[in-house]
Design a protein around this nucleic acid. Structure first.
Length: 802
DNA sequence: GCTCACCTATTTTTT
DNA sequence: ATAGGTGAGC
């Protein structure tokens, strides 16, 4: 573990300080004036302001990254701060890497001595260094959300909780929230009211006990345990306070309570020690992580939390055209109780925002692909300049299908992540079991993978033995033969498994991670099973495992390049903390010419010349689950704000009138966010009018012209003027689009319904056929749509059997 | 104890 | 659509 980090020595002083001071010039040659040249007034203030605490309210695209990196460089260059005294907290590992690089570009290699990382990585670093104070083994496992859910499943089963009332996922979420609030199990149990809360309290208590026994920490524990460590061991806290004289936090609006407390601990003064200089940067309008405990109050109340705070607002946007900013401002200004802030740009109006209403999500994707194609032909845009955003990961599929079909190169960031694939998780579970014999969740995951004749019964017998004799699950496996009621076959299987782990553990003491991984995959028979399989999916799994081996090899090379030893634990830590979205190098030449697909959440902090914001439908974006709740709706609106402000030059907004959600198509109304845009900002290339025309209920194709100067209602319906050219285009698209074929399919399929069939009506949604009468063209069906029952002539009704 | 076939609920968003 | 859970049959 030590290999990865420069740790503070036991007295808390960074070991690097002394030698560094001796061997390097204290004062770099960089001229502080040159550093701030080219910054505008507020930016320059934000960089040079000496004193604490400092809140930088940075609007989207206001050069926040530049200000932060320059501020750090300024500390080092002009204010004689040692890099070892700086800790900067970023939101993602990728942001940390970039920040470190940029600072290094300004002040040179000594920037390496700063701590720049996410909250989670910083806490792991501290906990590894202080593991004995924190009551941890040095090789604790880190559980991600999926591991937590699995453990919670075991816990819920053990407590005999009804899975309907208390699904493991829900329990895990509630427990996570409690941890973010720094509420421990006892406190919560004491105040728990009603059976629901008491069940959560029980689950929380047992869950924590099981984590402890497994020498594992989940993501929330990493923060919470560090806070508790500082609170219960003041001398440990003091060491870090003495060390870190400058604390900088990016994306402060996305901090949760535990992270807030951690910062407080870090920057509070002690006897004879001034508080550290704190600088936080954020934008309340870009807070989009409340669902995982982030609380916007931290930034709104900064001035109350920290006396004498200075606030600097960065309101000039350097990223987007005024048109795009106007749209963003219009949307976000609908959030009540928001501190007013108005971004402005001097880049001129730029291109109009382009809107498009497609009939289906396929047509929407077709249009996006076609438009990207047109842009790359007609302008100097490259595919790499384009990003396509959507609300949920599932929406990426249809874009992928279309992009593959038309040969448009793309990459999906996030989504079904590499590290979440079953085979990768299995392999990592082996590695964790090797490193940490007590990691019950990992051991139980792989003890019968591949099959060794160890079933649920045997697993239960071992578990019973472990709780009866109060030994760990791993220790109980070694004495499997003593387990009451276990079959001899299972005992043999467990024996093989234990021996396998032993051998691998021994290997891991000398071999680098990639060799241990390869040995694991071959010796366990995991790889052989996949290779022999006839399931075509399994070939892909083999490739993923090869990829994982390469990741391990790269890790080893990188660590050894720093003259440190690559350990298995270190590799696992990297894998646990580094999301693979972080690993996509933005300047990788392979990705230069590639369209980027990602969720709006992933898009935070990025920018693209051309942005497609898709799926703008009530129920999709804003998401269905947010519709009933004003707070959540505000968060969705902030998400829209984030999405819009990612665009530099061109912004496209699109939606689909019908969209297949989990199999069945559904009719979606326009997103309210579209209605919130000033209509002169958007030129609609195609409107819903084009859609209704083919079904016979609407007016002229795309020619609803003039549109609603009269206002909201019409625009809300998606009607807006289209140029004749746009109308012609719309008609052409309507005709070639996959939609029209669907329309004719609908008409042919309609007469075939029978009583009891489930059907979907384009307007009324899902229904069930109650009765059918008549034959051929005159056939009618009585359909129950839930809120109403009606007789429809099948030949004319846009009904589809599902 | 394992495998297959069927059933169901499930989808926000992520360090 | 699809993963995960349940139950029957081997």
């Amino acid at each position: 573990m030590r290999a990865l980090f420069e740790l503070p020595s036991p007295d808390g002083q960074p070991a690097v300080l002394a030698s560094d001071a001796d061997s390097r010039p204290r004062r770099p040659q960089l001229d502080p004036e040159a550093l701030v040249a080219g910054l505008n007034g507020p930016q320059r203030d934000a960089v040079t302001h000496a004193g604490s605490p400092l809140l930088i309210v940075a609007g989207a695209g206001s050069g926040k990254t530049r200000v932060l990196t320059h501020r750090i460089a300024y500390l080092l260059a002009a204010r004689d701060v040692h890099p070892g005294q700086v800790i900067a907290i970023t939101f993602t590992n990728k942001a940390a890497g970039e920040m470190k690089e940029r600072v290094a570009a300004l002040v040179g290699n000594r920037a390496r001595l700063m701590w720049v990382s996410t909250f989670h990585s910083a806490c792991v670093r501290i906990l590894r260094a202080e593991h004995d104070h924190a009551g941890l083994k040095s090789t604790f496992s880190i559980y991600d959300a999926d591991d937590s859910r699995r453990l919670m499943q075991l816990v819920a089963r053990e407590l005999d909780l009804d899975p309907k009332r208390h699904p493991a996922r829900g329990l895990a979420t509630q427990v996570s929230n409690l941890k973010n609030e720094l509420v421990d199990p006892e406190t919560f149990a004491a105040r728990a009211k009603g059976p629901m809360e008491r069940a959560v309290a029980e689950a929380y208590t047992l869950y924590q006990r099981r984590l402890k026994e497994a020498h594992a920490l989940d993501f929330d524990d990493l923060i919470m345990t560090t806070v508790h460590l500082f609170q219960s061991h003041p001398h440990v806290a003091e060491n870090y306070r003495r060390r870190f004289r400058h604390v900088l936090v990016d994306e402060y609006q996305d901090t949760n309570h535990a992270q807030y407390q951690l910062i407080k601990e870090l920057v509070s003064g002690t006897e004879g020690l001034e508080p550290a200089e704190l600088c936080v940067v954020g934008d309340a309008d870009q807070s989009i992580y409340a669902f995982r405990g982030a609380t916007i109050r931290n930034i709104l109340e900064f001035e109350r939390d920290y006396k004498d705070a200075r606030t600097i607002m960065l309101e000039q946007n350097y990223r987007s055209t005024q048109t795009i900013l106007n749209a963003a401002n219009a949307v976000i200004s609908r959030n009540p109780s928001r501190k007013p802030k108005r971004l402005w740009s001097d880049q001129g109006a730029g291109e109009s925002i382009v809107g498009y209403v497609a009939d289906t999500e396929h047509a929407e994707a077709d249009w996006v692909a076609r438009e990207i194609d047109r842009l790359t032909d007609d302008t100097d845009a490259r595919p790499g300049d384009v990003a396509v955003f959507y609300r949920t990961n599932a929406q990426s599929r249809v874009f992928e299908e279309v992009f593959i079909r038309v040969g448009l190169p793309y990459k999906v960031v996030g989504g079904v992540r590499f590290y979440e694939r079953r085979e990768v998780r299995d392999a990592l579970a082996y590695l964790r079991a090797i490193v940490n014999d007590d990691d019950t969740v990992s051991i139980r995951r792989i003890m019968n993978t591949p099959r060794r004749g160890i079933g649920d019964r045997a697993e239960g017998a071992v578990e019973a033995l472990s709780s009866r004799d109060r030994i760990s699950f791993g220790a109980a496996m070694r004495r499997a033969a003593d387990a009451p009621g276990i079959s001899s076959r299972a005992v043999n299987g467990i024996g093989d498994f234990v021996a396998l782990l032993e051998g691998l553990r021994e290997l891991s003491e000398t071999a680098p991670p990639e060799e241990v991984l390869e040995a694991t995959l071959t010796r366990s028979g995991y790889l052989a099973e996949l290779e022999e399989s006839t399931d075509p999916q399994d070939a892909g799994r083999v490739e993923n495992l090869q990829e994982l081996v390469s990741v391990a090899r790269e890790f080893t090379e990188r660590v050894e390049g720093n003259d440190e030893q690559a350990t298995l634990a270190g590799f696992l830590e990297q894998v646990a903390l580094v999301a693979d979205a972080d690993q996509i190098p933005s300047d990788d030449p392979d990705h230069q010419g590639v369209v980027t697909l990602m969720t709006l959440h992933t898009a935070k902090g990025l920018e693209f010349p051309i942005v497609f914001l898709t799926g703008l439908e009530d129920g999709v974006f804003p998401h269905m689950r947010a519709l009933g709740d004003n707070n959540e709706l505000e968060e969705e609106r902030r998400l829209a704000y984030v999405g819009i402000t990612r665009a530099r030059q061109r912004l496209y907004l699109s939606r689909a009138v019908t969209r297949s959600a989990w199999g069945a198509p559904s009719y979606n109304p326009t997103s309210r966010f579209i209605a919130e845009l000033p209509e002169e900002l958007v030129r609609w290339e195609r409107t819903e009018g084009s859609y209704t025309s083919w079904s016979g209920t609407g007016g002229g194709v795309g020619n609803r012209g003039g549109s609603g100067a009269s206002g909201g209602a019409a625009r809300g319906g998606g009607f807006s003027g289209g140029t004749p050219k746009a109308a012609a285009l719309a008609q052409r698209l309507g005709i070639d689009g996959s939609k029209l074929s669907t329309a004719s399919e609908l008409r042919q399929a309609a007469p075939k319904v029978a009583v009891g069939d489930r059907v979907n009506h384009q307007r009324y949604g899902l229904g069930r056929v109650l009765a059918v009468e008549g034959q051929g063209p005159s056939a009618r069906a009585q359909i129950d749509f839930g809120d109403q029952t009606m007789w429809l002539v099948l030949r004319h009704a846009p009904v589809e059997k599902i």
